[in-house]
Design a binder for these strands. Structure first.
Length: 232
DNA sequence: ACCCAGGGTCATA
DNA sequence: TATGACCATGGG
C-alpha cells in the first residue's frame, strides 16, 4: 500500500523536476477534443501537423468536418497516422457533438452523464473521454494512460495490470484524502483544487515520460527526483 | 532495420 | 472475459 501522501509527494517531485506544463496544448475546447482523438497511440508531434492542416483548410470545426468527405478528412489528418480510422472517429464524434447541441449545452451536463455520452461514440474510449472531460470541460477526472499505469506501478502504488476504472477511482480517492488532510480544509478546498491538480498531474506524467532515461541515461531531473520510470 | 508513440474496436475462443 | 489483429505516420 502506498504511504499516506504518496500521490501528492510524487506530484511535487514531478513539478519540481519538470516545471508547470500549462496543458492542454490547444486554443479552443473543440481543438482539444480533436487533438484527443488524433493523439490516440500517436506522438503529439504528428498530431500537431494534422491540426495545422485542419486549420489551413478552415476545417477545425464540427460542421466543416462533417461537410467534408471522409477521404478528404483522412488526407488532412494523414500525418497523425491511422487516418482512415481517425477520420471516421472524428466524424462519429462531430455527429454526436452537434446532435447534442454543441459545447454550451454539453457544458451544462453533469460529469457522469457527459462521460457516458462521450463513451457512446464509437472511437471514444475511456482515456479519450477523460482527456475531453478534464481539458475541454474542466471536469475533475484523473486521466489514466499507459505512462500513468507504468509510473504508479513501478512506484508500487498500483498493480501493473490495474484496469482503467479501478485505477482512476483509486487515484482520485487517494488524492482527495491526501489533499483534504494535508491542506487541511475539507471538501470545498478539494473541489476547488482537483481540476487544476489533475490537469497538471497528467501533463507532468507525460512530460516525465518524454524526458525519460532512453534519451538521457543519467538524466538529472527524474533520477534525482527518485521517480525515473526508465524503459521496459 | 528496428522500436515506439498521450488508444480503441472487433473477431475469436 | 481475455487475448490478438488491426489501424499507419514520423522520429529516435
Amino acid at each position: 500500500m502506498p504511504r499516506r501522501s504518496a500521490f501528492l509527494s510524487v506530484f511535487d517531485r514531478l513539478l519540481s523536476a519538470h516545471g508547470p506544463q500549462h496543458w492542454w496544448p490547444g486554443e479552443t475546447p473543440f481543438e482539444v477534443m480533436v487533438g484527443a482523438v488524433l493523439t490516440q497511440n500517436t506522438a503529439w508531434s504528428n498530431v500537431e501537423r494534422a491540426i495545422v492542416a485542419l486549420k489551413e483548410n478552415a476545417a477545425l470545426d464540427p460542421e466543416c468536418l462533417l461537410a467534408a468527405a471522409p477521404a478528404t478528412v483522412a488526407r488532412w489528418i494523414r500525418p497523425a497516422g491511422y487516418f482512415n480510422v481517425k477520420a471516421k472517429r472524428l466524424r462519429n464524434f462531430c455527429r454526436w457533438y452537434l446532435k447534442q447541441g454543441g459545447y454550451d449545452v454539453l457544458a451544462r451536463r453533469e460529469t457522469g452523464a457527459l462521460r457516458h455520452g462521450l463513451l457512446s461514440v464509437n472511437g471514444i474510449g475511456p482515456e479519450t473521454a477523460d482527456d475531453i472531460l478534464l481539458y475541454a470541460f474542466e471536469r475533475p477526472v484523473f486521466v489514466i494512460d499507459a505512462y500513468t499505469r507504468r509510473l504508479f506501478s513501478r512506484l508500487g502504488m498500483c498493480e501493473a495490470d490495474a484496469g482503467y476504472e479501478p485505477l482512476r477511482a483509486a487515484v482520485e480517492q487517494a488524492l482527495a484524502r491526501e489533499l483534504t488532510r494535508s491542506r487541511g480544509a475539507g471538501r470545498a478546498v478539494w473541489k476547488r483544487n482537483s481540476v487544476p491538480l489533475y490537469n497538471e498531474y497528467h501533463a507532468l506524467i507525460v512530460a516525465h515520460a518524454k524526458r525519460s532515461c532512453r534519451a538521457r541515461p543519467l538524466c538529472q531531473d527524474c533520477c534525482l527526483a527518485g521517480i525515473c520510470p526508465g524503459r521496459q
